[in-house]
Design a protein around this nucleic acid. Structure first.
Lengths: 117, 117
DNA sequence: TTGACATGTAGGGAATCTCCTACCTATCGT
DNA sequence: ACGATAGGTAGGAGATTCCCTACATGTCAA
């Protein structure tokens, strides 16, 4: 049953992983700086390394990064596929903010009531 | 201080709000069913109404829904603007999954040195 | 082999999340 | 005014998060 419930769980994991500034910053560092060992990432944070290790685990579990061992280092790499799924999730909402930005929805949606301007 | 830190906090709130299947379902219901009172939303969930009320508060605080009172009902409406910001956040990552899907990134990224082909 | 280095894991504490059962407030119909 | 309806708020239990300090594991260098 690789059905609907499974997808929800995956989305939970991805959104939850993104709901943290440190983890988003890790993704940005991997995006802008390319694959890096943990040490290099850790330099950017005011946090003990084991804590960062746990953030990396969250990102790994969400499929947002992968690790590749190289000697005693582990090179982390951005894996953007789950972000593509986030974009897919966003798609059906797109027309709502486009409407809003055109300034049409603002008026149309609020018509039904309100007489005291 | 409406600078960088503030934006991070807002993104935290939005992503955290989205990191829950119930809240994403509320957004979907408002998207597909239009503005609705709490009762109508509650019918879709196997959860006590006060709990749903709290989810609505989280969505309100994240700016993802707005409420408009109408008699003793409160009509909730989807507010998609924060989702537009999520899409903006995604943009810089887009090339990564596009590369990957084309099968190019796989090779390029793993090059020891930055081979500028 | 011994030691230093790079990283993960264990366990714990404070804060937060998510659900619950009361309970409070405001509005409608009679 | 009265009861019923729509919805939020308070307070609490149990799970989870996020940070920490130890400690374990694996690899390189001498």
């Amino acid at each position: 049953m690789t059905g609907a419930g499974a997808r929800e769980a995956v989305e939970d994991q991805v959104f939850a992983a993104l709901a943290n500034a440190t983890r988003r910053e890790v993704l940005r560092l991997l995006r802008d700086g390319g694959p890096q060992p943990v040490q290099a990432l850790a330099d950017h944070f005011d946090m003990r390394r084991p804590s960062l290790s746990e953030h990396l685990k969250v990102l790994r579990d969400a499929g947002l990064v992968s690790e590749q061992r190289s000697g005693r280092q582990r090179i982390y790499r951005l894996e953007a596929a789950p972000l593509a799924e986030v974009q897919d999730w966003l798609h059906p909402y797109e027309r709502f903010w486009r409407e809003r930005l055109k300034g049409l929805g603002e008026l149309l949606d609020r018509m039904p009531d309100d007489g005291a301007t």
